[in-house]
Simulated scan of single mutants.
Amino acid sequence: MAKFLNTSATNYFLEELIKSTNDKLILISPFLKLNNRIKELLEDKNRMKIDIRIVYGKIEMKNEEINWLKELSFVRTSFCENLHAKCYMNEKMCIVTSMNLYEFSQVNNNEMGILIKRDDDQELYNDTKEEAERIIRVSDEVRMSVEKVEKIEKENEEDQHDKLTTSKLATKLKIKTDELLSKLLKDGYLEIKNEKEHLTQKGKDVGGEWRASKYGGYFLWDKEMKI
């Protein structure tokens, strides 16, 4: 019998699901921004040479996420257009939920989901697995590299001599990128909408820009911007 999960229970069983994986792990989430705990668990499974498939559906993946994923040899990442499903599963159980694999969702949102165990309901588990594998088949596998990301940033910055990406501005200010993003949110230059950062009018007034690309979106800021 499936078990109902609220937000905290979904977070708990998601960690347990990843930790208990011995064969194959599938993570399907439109938005992807992993918290440090999930990253640690995935890094451990990567060391154990577990097959990990991650499917996401929004191009605005952070460059930091792309570069981190690149370092995990046993993780394959795919992009699925029009993805809205959220499903996390291994060889023994799966979670079907409203919660994205996104740090903001896990902390701030009210979510619901169900836990399905293969031994308790094999038919329901198999149906879910079949659909998850179909989504993987129709997805485009993405192999990103640090060089590609840096090339994209460089190409766009060539036309924006007075602009820096968030990561480069953070380097200039001698702080971490996440710390700079927090400051930009706190000071009203960015805001959270639909679980991701957006420029506010205040951010646009100081020269902030959003750039979308095939491999991920990013912000550009005036290189003389003071935070």
Rank of each mutant, 00 (worst) to 15 (best):
E60Q: 11
Y218R: 06
S8V: 10
I95Y: 06
A170N: 01
V149N: 11
I135Y: 08
D140W: 09
V55F: 03
L185Y: 05
T166G: 04
W221G: 00
I136F: 12
D187V: 10
K174V: 02
V142I: 12
D23K: 05
F74D: 11
M61I: 15
I26M: 09
E209M: 08
K172F: 01
K117C: 10
K196H: 07
Y56Q: 04
R76D: 00
S139V: 10
A85N: 02
R211N: 07
E15S: 08
D162E: 14
N11W: 02
K183V: 10
K49I: 12
K45V: 07
I26N: 02
I152K: 06
F4P: 00
T97N: 03
E150P: 07
L5H: 09
I152A: 01
E130M: 12
N109R: 11
K226S: 14
K33Y: 09
V107W: 09
E111M: 12
N90I: 02
L181K: 15
Q106H: 12
I114D: 04
S8Y: 13
N35E: 14
K19L: 07
M89V: 12
E103A: 14
E71N: 11
T97A: 00
T166C: 00
D178N: 15
K92A: 08
E65F: 00
G188E: 06
